[in-house]
Amino acid sequence: MEGRLPDRVWSSDDVGKLPYEIAQAQKINSLFGPKGSKDAYDVILDLHNTTAHMGATLILESSTDDFNIQMCKYIQKSMAPLPCAVLLIEQPGVKYETTRSIAKHPIGVEVGPQPQGVIRADILYIMKIVVQYALDFMQYFNEGIEFPPCSIEVYRVLEKIDYPRDDNGDLSAVIHPTLQDQDWKPLNPGDPMFIAMDGSITYYEGEETVYPTFVNEAAYYEKKQAFVKTEKVTLTAQSIHCNSV
């Protein structure tokens, strides 16, 4: 499967004049890409910890990537009974520019909750076994093992939800206690979402049950995101095997 065409072509001209982030993006694109080319890396595992109570989470960027769907299925099955959610971010209105997107088959890994600047052995262990099962899957694939058709339940991103804010753009309410730490749990119409200092509550007014995640993620305050609404969908993948064995 070919990688996605780049949104723009990174040029090496005037590198010294570029902001640090853009210069680093060019460097990463040169090392692992170029993005969208036949020479781009086949797989990149993009590892993150989160302050949200998400547990082990795999992030898919395409609902039609048989290789990645099969990998997620293998990791989920191998980790059982430890839960491992799969988040599908294939949504035009919710765009994430990531290092992993350079690869033909990008996979994101989020594990939490873990406070920023803190190392927790249990979270580190979960991250380790997710990576190990991913490597096992790739090894088996390279050895020519065929993976039969499969299906997998995922949480597809619908939209980002911001905190209530005042006229100055400052937060006027926080995550309601009944929503805090409830990643992947159903949020039903009429359920509380936010509570203000005066005790007033903002309720979910949608018509369908959704499944929040990245609830109260510390890194997303500046991105105006209190949580992400998702819906459950089922993805299917055809059988895959390595043709070069």
Score class of each variant (00 low, 15 high):
Glu205Phe: 01
Glu2Gln: 12
Gly33Tyr: 05
His53Met: 15
Leu82Ser: 13
Gln116Ser: 12
Val15Leu: 15
Pro186Ser: 05
Ile107His: 06
Val233Gly: 04
Gly108Val: 12
Ser151Asn: 15
Ile123Arg: 01
Pro115Trp: 01
Lys38Trp: 08
Val86Asp: 00
Gln114His: 07
Ala52Pro: 03
Ile123Glu: 06
Val109Lys: 01
Val94Glu: 08
Phe32Glu: 06
Val130Ser: 01
Val233Cys: 02
Met197Phe: 07
Ser62Ala: 14
Gly33His: 07
Pro83Lys: 12
Ser239Gln: 09
Val154Phe: 04
Pro189Tyr: 07
Gly199Ala: 06
Ala196Asn: 04
Leu60Trp: 01
Phe194Gly: 05
Cys72Val: 11
Ile22Phe: 08
Ala85Gln: 12
Met127Ala: 13
Thr98Ala: 06
Val233Phe: 00
Met79Thr: 10
Tyr125Leu: 15
Glu110Ser: 12
Met71Ile: 09
Leu18Ser: 10
Glu153Val: 07
Tyr96Lys: 09
Ser11Gln: 14
Gln91Arg: 14
Leu158Thr: 11
Gly117Phe: 09
Thr64His: 11
Ala121Leu: 13
Lys232Asn: 05
Lys35Asp: 02
Tyr74Met: 09
Tyr220Ala: 06
Ile123His: 04
Thr178Gly: 03
Thr236Pro: 02
Met127Gln: 15
Phe227Ser: 01
Thr64Ser: 14
Asp181Arg: 06
Glu217Lys: 04
His176Asn: 11
Lys38Tyr: 10
Pro83Cys: 12
Ala196Trp: 10
Leu31Asp: 09
Lys95Ile: 00
Glu205Asp: 15
Glu159Trp: 09
Asp122Cys: 03
Ala103Ile: 01
Pro19Leu: 04
Val228Ile: 13
Leu18Trp: 10
Arg165Glu: 13
Val43Met: 03
Thr234Arg: 02
Val174His: 09
Glu2Pro: 13
Lys104Leu: 08
Val174Gly: 08
Tyr220Asp: 12
Asp66His: 10
Ile28Leu: 13
Asn68Phe: 00
Cys72Gly: 07
Glu143Asp: 14
Gln26Asp: 07
Arg4Met: 10
Gln116Asp: 13
